[in-house]
Design a protein around this nucleic acid. Sequence first.
DNA 1: CGTTATGTTGACGCGAGTCAACTAAGGTGG
DNA 2: CCACCTTAGTTGACTCGCGTCAACATAACG
Lengths: 254, 254
Amino acid sequence: MSDSTFHVDLAQMIEQIVGKLSRFFDMTEEMADGIRVLCKDSTEFARGTLLIEADQPYQKVFLVRQGWAVRYKLLPSGDRQIINFALPGDFLCFNASIFGTSDHFVAAKTFLQTFAFDIAPFQHMLTSYPAMALAMSWANAHEEAVLAERIASLGRRSARQRMAHLFCELWRRLQLLGLTEQGAFPLPVTQEDLGDTLGLSVVHVNRTLRRLSADGLIAREHGLVRILDMGRLQQVAGFEDGYLHFTELAARRR
Amino acid sequence: MSDSTFHVDLAQMIEQIVGKLSRFFDMTEEMADGIRVLCKDSTEFARGTLLIEADQPYQKVFLVRQGWAVRYKLLPSGDRQIINFALPGDFLCFNASIFGTSDHFVAAKTFLQTFAFDIAPFQHMLTSYPAMALAMSWANAHEEAVLAERIASLGRRSARQRMAHLFCELWRRLQLLGLTEQGAFPLPVTQEDLGDTLGLSVVHVNRTLRRLSADGLIAREHGLVRILDMGRLQQVAGFEDGYLHFTELAARRR
DNA sequence: CGTTATGTTGACGCGAGTCAACTAAGGTGG
DNA sequence: CCACCTTAGTTGACTCGCGTCAACATAACG
């Protein structure tokens, strides 16, 4: 937590705060003020740090500024299931703050920069600024849509299709954030993480990745995934980006 | 749609409207008035009716009063994946109203009674009454928690465990609504529906159900599931009800 | 420069899918 | 009220995708 991070101009800060949402929802100067007050508390986490544990009372709501986090569950059997990846612009622990208790773990997969809000003033801002509440609703609905699509993957897609689908999804989400480069996107997770995300064993993740590479669909290079043939990858995945609702967002802005 | 359904007293109507939420959140008389206006439009659907289709513009937000509905996706391959079951007290199409377009289908599994809200006045009520917005947040968070647990099931549980877990979950949800009787709950869905929910083939659903019966965990009787040994069923499922957050709700009320 | 986390590969087994045939139940019209 | 038809449920035989086990390779890291 350092004050030096606050010597950014307001516009940039707002951009960070509402993340991708700020591009699509109008904001008044009043809201900007409210946000400025809220965002006094910037918090950073080292890679591997737990932000919250299951069954623990909540502490804060976090907004990711930079880095990746994972939400996951530990089953009584000891197995782990990753629910989803949180990227810059995503909120964390909002639900925990509603419930008062978390039902899952959240951990930093990379060095993680966040804004941390106490729930009371955060809720107050939502009730004060309907546009912020709408943005929050959008964020929640978006997250739920991603979970629903993951359910479809786990229930009805093969290992190869799941992997391809995950890559298509990450590509689109990161692209919107401007975090892709020349057909490649960062993937700072282990093959075990991928397995726990897609419901596969590590061994099968490995085989699936190598097969996707061998087929010329992707290439893996040092924490990056390069998409070599997006058309075929989407076809393999059965990927249709409608559930992300990015195009409607862009349209609304016009 | 008939006016005769409105000759119920206000208290009962409110109870229906906010469903299980009304037991846990305080309501003012003003809110009750707002709700009364909103709920003028009661809508019923025959079994099998589609309430909304994927890629279609939204129409309404629905609150289930009675009956079951399913939310599901159709993949490009033609496979179907059921996302979840909507029970009395659950909202439908709220996300579609946020996005402006639905990313999934919603169909009535039984004769279905709902309140149908136009999105504009509904949103207006949420901004007017923070307690309603909080209740809505709770409902959203709850739904997302259920999806997250389904992800864990699909990713890391066996067919037997998934089935047991689904039954435990439905039992708890229906119990809260007072819709269980003597250890049994209604399950108005086909084995194909169960398969599309749990990511299994119909054949395997059948075998799994028979094995659970043979083991004395459940009994199936004409649209009902009777739980014969809840302790063992929960153990098989690895069921821990924390993710439903029902106990916190009850505690909050005290 | 050892030590630990991560990635890779082969052999083998099992849980769940597929195919196919049949039974039972529900609904509809004559 | 039966004859028919369609939908839902049941069971066995066979197949295969993916898990498990085990050994090893490589990269990350202090």
